[in-house]
Write a protein that binds this DNA or RNA. Structure first.
Lengths: 340, 340
DNA sequence: CTGAAAGCGCTAACAT
DNA sequence: ATGTTAGCGCTTTCAG
């Protein structure tokens, strides 16, 4: 026996039902449901009770349709990316404050960015926020032609879309400064290949090293975004002579892989070698990891991205396409003075 | 200068616009857009071209409204839960095959299950799939009164909702069997407290131990779902005398915390002590982790959950409320023969 | 403060 | 094969 016989056609209660039940007009019910003014406290009460009685819930779709505004912010995010999860959480909060709903569309190995964005468009989102988009600039530009687009954590050279990102280069500079202060010279960078932000971080590393007169110690090892790639690179580090005394990894995940390999190889962190991550994700904060890292302020970035999207929708004058958020350097327990 | 002047009021092209442009009726355009029959190949071509020319995209909401079916499956998931990410990916795929769209609603520290479900209801999802819901049974039952509900990875004693879950108890039994075969006796279980599945896994552990005549070796340590909690429990393990030779952790995350502490304490895995996880998440598969674990088949669970939701919507006769998916035991490199 | 009525963009009968 | 038309559930003037 089906529990929801004809769930397909099942008519949920509508405004009209509530109106009939409460003995008022649909318009009045609408007013009450929207918390608009124009109804006496008494009527309001009665309508609310009626709605509750018959289990009425406003229909977002009909509402959107009528208002010809969806008040919907589309968010494209990497399903398996913890940093994106943090951002999404912040976006939910910021959007609510701004009076917008959020439509999520995930990108995964089996679901392309293209598809993800299509859904968002079909849902009539008024603007989209793309987290770490990999789409070619041309494609983004085309999208910008249709609606406001905010790209997060992705640099664009001729920004067609708005961009909110962390000052990647500066973040790495902070890391280098910190390590140099601790006496390190042989500081190696495990990079992120062509991931968003990777080239900036490489550049920041090289610049900072040079500024400290450590040009000859510059050493960029190919890495990646995953623990696996970090682990592989860490093995390279261990065979490098002279052996580096400090490692700046592309991100926290990568750094975790590095730590793991060092641990297994009886290389002590931070006594023998210091390790710095990037993101200040949950991972870095785990007490047994306690990773020194460059913090990206997910909450702030999320807030700014939403604010920017809303500003565009409100037709405000927006001076700059790009918002660069300064990183915070978080010193924990994986960095220490150079050994010896 | 705003790039989207009046983006608010900006009228996107509608069916009528396409119709006018192509010089046909809206009905015909509708037919073409839905790929329904009733239009000549020639007209079809012309309409499609017109749509492309003026950048038309069907409006999902209006479509839903009119069809009085949304063909929308609501999915509630834990934003920071990697296993849920795997499930979501599978659900996208399965839903598409079944001709449904997916509406995602995340649960996070700052966003309760209650809120998440509210959104799904407001969006007029026809059915909801809840991943690892923590809501009390009564609340679920109430929800079931409104629409078909499939709870994934959560046991219900008097299932009001449909349930798709892994045979947790059996999974742990497989782990115990494996360890006993390797000669282990002092096998400790780090549990998951009141997380979904935790009590089943505890029970499975106790039962299996007893069946092997190891009742006196039963030892359940309070743990949790996170690396942090796993790490804390691992410290307990190290102070237990006689020291256990094997650990079955609540899940892979927890096991990772355990591994980390062991590594730091110079306790070799698997030479000194064996470790087993649960989930077979990405984490377990990382080459440098290579965790022996009890695999939950995310793809299959996702598929079954969608199938069940669709079956309910189709008013099919469904014999059982509960679908229990057998676990796969995955032997990697964290288990070995008992030392000595 | 309340009600009647006109659509929002689309689909599905029903005509032609 | 194509056009006409009546709503889906809601919001929003505009009159009472």
């Amino acid at each position: 026996m089906a529990q929801h016989p004809g769930a397909r056609e099942g008519k949920r209660p509508t405004l009209a039902d509530v109106a009939a039940y409460a003995g008022v007009s649909t318009a009045l019910v609408s007013i009450v449901m929207r918390d608009a003014k124009g109804a006496s406290a008494q009527t309001r009460e009665r309508v609310l009770q009626a709605a509750k009685d018959i289990g009425y819930r406003p229909d977002t779709r009909a509402r959107m349709l009528r208002r010809s505004r969806s008040r919907l912010l589309g968010v494209q995010f990497g399903l398996h990316n913890p940093f994106h999860s943090d951002l999404v959480e912040g976006i939910y909060a910021a959007a609510e404050k701004a009076g917008y709903d959020v439509a999520l569309s995930a990108v995964a190995p089996s679901r392309s960015e293209q598809r993800a964005v299509e859904m968002l468009l079909a849902d009539r989102c008024e603007a989209v926020i793309l987290l770490g988009p990999q789409a070619p600039a041309a494609q983004l530009a085309e999208l910008v032609g249709r609606l406001p687009v905010v790209a997060v954590a992705r640099r664009l050279r001729e920004p067609s879309a708005d961009v909110v990102r962390t000052a990647d280069a500066e973040g790495v500079r902070l890391a280098v400064d910190h390590l140099v202060e601790l006496g390190h010279q042989d500081i190696v960078h495990i990079d992120g290949g062509k991931a968003p932000g990777a080239s900036d971080r490489r550049r920041g590393y090289r610049t900072a090293m040079r500024r400290h007169g450590l040009a000859e110690h510059i050493n960029v090892l190919p890495g990646g975004l995953t623990e696996e790639e970090g682990a592989a690179a860490a093995r390279d580090v261990l065979t490098t002579r002279p052996r580096p005394t400090a490692v700046i990894a592309f991100n926290d995940h990568c750094a975790t892989g590095v730590l793991d390999v060092f641990l297994r190889s009886r290389v002590r962190v931070p006594a023998d070698i210091s390790v710095v991550g990037f993101d200040d994700s949950r991972l870095a904060r785990l007490s047994h990891v306690s990773l020194t890292t460059v913090g990206q302020d997910a909450a702030r970035i999320a807030e700014l991205a939403v604010a920017r999207a809303v500003a565009r929708l409100d037709g405000e004058h927006v001076p700059d396409r790009e918002i660069v958020v300064p990183p915070r350097f978080v010193i924990r327990r994986t960095t220490a003075a150079r050994p010896g």
